[in-house]
């Protein structure tokens, strides 16, 4: 195996291939970043929407519930295809990368909404009640009282999800977005061995997701590690 890799390495290690892989890695990184950042924002917003009580917000609560329940139960590929064909049918000319970005955001949002919801729900009801009797609004209650106590419950599963999520952006290759997995297949088709092509991509996936896991661990000790978040 190593002989073949060594034999094809000079042919593989060209500037063009390196640039190709770098672009693909950048796409994977961008998809992941979009999903993680926008997904987190959506996740928090949807979780907060689920905590509202006002009667006129009932439709919003139902929608939030439907969103999280649906998108967590549908295979990623189905969500991707659905988004892809809906965009096509609507006649809007969106780049494939954008379609993929929308899809990963929808998926990440649903998963993170559930993680955040569970975190908020785990904070003792008497904390919510105390805030209510002192006229905290819902947002003030969540920002000042509940979220600071919910971080230890929200961060570990969130970063677990992020790490899983980076590799799940490989899905975008299904609609022809040239991200890492797609790039591996292209190189493989060009005649490089699968071992080399996919092995190379494996290293790149690891390089992308490992720092994120480290960041997660850092945040956990900072926000959630010691008994109290020191101001």
């Amino acid at each position: 195996m190593f002989e073949t890799i060594l034999a094809e390495w000079p042919r593989f290690a060209t500037l063009a291939n390196a640039a190709f892989l770098a672009r693909a890695a950048a796409t994977t990184l961008a998809l992941s970043a979009v999903g993680v950042v926008l997904g987190s924002l959506i996740g928090v917003a949807v979780a907060v929407a689920g905590r509202t009580r006002a009667g006129w917000l009932r439709p919003v609560r139902l929608l939030a519930r439907l969103y999280t329940e649906l998108f967590r139960r549908v295979p990623f590929l189905v969500t991707l295809m659905l988004t892809f064909y809906l965009v096509q049918a609507s006649g809007v000319d969106l780049p494939l990368a954008v379609v993929a970005g929308v899809t990963v955001t929808l998926i990440a949002g649903a998963y993170l909404a559930e993680i955040v919801r569970a975190g908020l729900a785990a904070v003792h009801p008497n904390q919510w009640e105390a805030a209510a009797t002192m006229n905290f609004t819902l947002l003030q209650t969540i920002r000042l009282v509940v979220l600071p106590q919910a971080w230890p419950l929200i961060l570990p599963p969130s970063f677990g999800f992020f790490v899983m999520f980076i590799k799940d952006t490989a899905l975008a290759s299904q609609i022809g977005v040239i991200e890492l997995t797609y790039a591996a297949r292209v190189l493989n088709n060009k005649g490089f061995s699968a071992t080399l092509s996919f092995g190379c991509v494996l290293v790149l996936y690891f390089a992308l997701s490992y720092p994120l896991a480290r960041l997660g661990a850092r945040l956990e000790t900072r926000l959630a590690g010691p008994r109290h978040p020191r101001p």
Binding site: N126, F136, P231
Partner: peptide, 20 residues
């Protein structure tokens, strides 16, 4: 029902300062 994420002083001050 003290806020667990705040010190004693913060618990007493938060509502007058942040809410009122």
């Amino acid at each position: 029902n003290l806020f667990q994420n705040m010190t004693v002083l913060q618990n007493v001050c938060i509502t007058p300062v942040k809410i009122r």
